[in-house]
Amino acid sequence: MITPLLEVEGLSVTFKTPHRLVRAVRDISFAVGKEKVGIVGESGSGKSVTGRAILKLTPGNGTVSARRMQFEEIDLANASETEMLNVRGKRIGMILQDPKFSLDPVMRAGDQIAEALPPGLTKAEARERVLEVLEAVQIRNPKRVYDLYPHECSGGMGQRVMIAMMLVPEPKLLIADEPTSALDVTVRMQVLAILDDLVERRGLGLMFISHDLNLVATFCDRVLIMYAGRIVEECKASELRQATHPYTQGLLASLPRIGDRRKRLATLVRDPAWAL
């Protein structure tokens, strides 16, 4: 087992709504080391809520509780808001689905990245550092991209700028919530290759949230499968096809595949016991 960067034990998130209590995440435990950990599950299974709870970015009507939430030497479970400010973005980065929502539309890409740099650098130094990270996300012509506005970037480019921005403070862990769902398949693969490369070369930990089983199975090292706020199964990504839980098996069987000659796809028959 790789030494974990992040260890979570007994994490629960509950939302209060006018109608009832929504228990979005229920008593889950997992660890992330310097590896790619995938979290998969259907819509509403609690993947995004889990990702946000780690950074304590849960909306006001939600409460987070955990027996233990340790990130390196920091006890996230009991960290104050000021301590969290030093963790968010600096030591744990977060990449969201659509770069268009996370980038400032009236600021050049390079300047946005420069904002994330520690204060006290001269202009030239800052520029130098930004060009470096742009190169780290495989942008060949960083000088040109520096001066682009977000709307002038293609989807894949925008997402790379977003990743570059996250990399500036040299975080140890990246939480990527569906980072490629808004991208075209061909661009998607390139963004993934860059993330892959970063994990390998910089020794990052990556929490990769996705609903695409196929992608997670081929991209990640380990997979957590969530159902109704619980982790129902955890396995090596390469062994996902041999997963034992009927939910995981059901999801896999319901995927259409090229060259598969079934006339009808298997559908998932849900067992209420899974959600217990």
Binding site: I139, M189, L215, I258
Partner: peptide, 24 residues
């Protein structure tokens, strides 16, 4: 071919090559 390969899932070798080709 690209669409076909992408639908099979992530392939490190192919994708890295693609990034290079695209940037060139």
């Amino acid at each position: 071919r690209q669409l076909f390969e992408a639908s099979l899932g992530y392939d490190k070798r192919l994708s890295t090559a693609q990034v290079k080709a695209l940037d060139e």
